[in-house]
């Protein structure tokens, strides 16, 4: 089975992340980026399925030049080929526009017939988690989301979704789109051999025009939502020091109760 995985290049959460002052978008140039950790689970799951079934894994990303690193990392892990959609007009795109570009890229990469699309459950920068559902709708595929287990068989995909109070087993007919959680597997590291092999793997670089998308459908100016203001989190306030005069325990309990911890 041929599988498409959507991946995103995000600012390193360990670094000092920020926003562009001019338009309140995420600063992607001034911070080291990497393949979103939540997407590594999607890549790993696709690799496992492809290894078992003999298919190919294609990774698709959208983003500026450095987003190619996310594709490269997935290729080093073992994916077979990559697609990088890179166009200045994409800057500032919201989730509907992102899903539009991804959908067209997936159609082009699969001649309009994707068999299985796997995504992470959210990106680690935007953390909206809505793109998988929007993408499924645009591709006309059934969506099964937040999978912490995934099996294929009889033309169906079956997932387990762990909720707070229960566990659901959900089936969908193939082709389908699945988003996976960070509980589904342990992503592999790239290997030295994988790093060497990745240099020879094909990566397509497409623009909006290659996908037949009008620049007026995407980008910051056409976003349905907009970040209007950004304020830094205020510094943490000075802690309250309670002197224990024999009633320290009571005071501590009162402190916690007042904040509804007890």
């Amino acid at each position: 089975m041929n599988i498409v995985v959507c991946v995103k290049h995000v600012p390193d959460a360990q670094a000092d992340r920020g926003f562009n002052e001019s338009d309140n978008t995420v600063d992607r140039a001034g911070v080291d980026g990497l393949l979103s950790e939540l997407d590594e689970y999607a890549v790993e799951e696709a690799l496992k399925l492809a290894e078992a079934s003999g298919g190919e894994v294609t990774v698709v990303t959208i983003g500026p030049d450095q987003a190619a690193d996310a594709v490269k990392k997935a290729l080093q892990m073992g994916a077979d080929k990559g697609v990088h959609v890179n166009d200045e007009a994409i800057h500032g795109s919201d989730a509907p526009a992102t899903s539009l570009i991804l959908a067209e890229a997936i159609k082009k990469a699969t001649d309009g017939n994707p068999e299985l699309v796997i995504t992470g459950m959210a990106s680690t920068d935007g953390t909206m988690g809505v793109v998988p559902a929007m993408l499924a709708e645009r591709l006309g595929l059934p969506q099964v989301t937040y999978a912490s287990e995934l099996t294929l068989g009889d033309g169906k995909v079956t997932i387990r979704r762990d909720n707070d109070a229960n566990t659901e087993t959900i089936e969908a007919s193939l082709p389908a789109l699945v988003s996976v959680t960070d509980q589904i597997n342990e992503p592999r590291y790239p290997s030295f051999k994988g790093i060497m092999a990745a240099k020879k793997k094909p990566v397509e670089s497409w623009t909006l025009a290659d996908l037949g998308i009008d620049a007026g459908q995407v980008g910051l100016a056409n976003a349905w939502t907009k970040v209007v203001e950004i304020a830094k989190r205020p510094p943490r306030e000075q802690g309250e020091i309670v002197k224990d005069e024999g009633d320290g325990g009571t005071k501590l309990a009162e402190f916690l109760a007042a904040r509804k911890f007890l």
Binding site: K72, Y189, P190, F192, I195, A198, K199
Partner: peptide, 12 residues
Amino acid sequence: HSRETVDAVLEL
């Protein structure tokens, strides 16, 4: 080998 290879290996 290339800069790209060695950077990836060091990252690994």
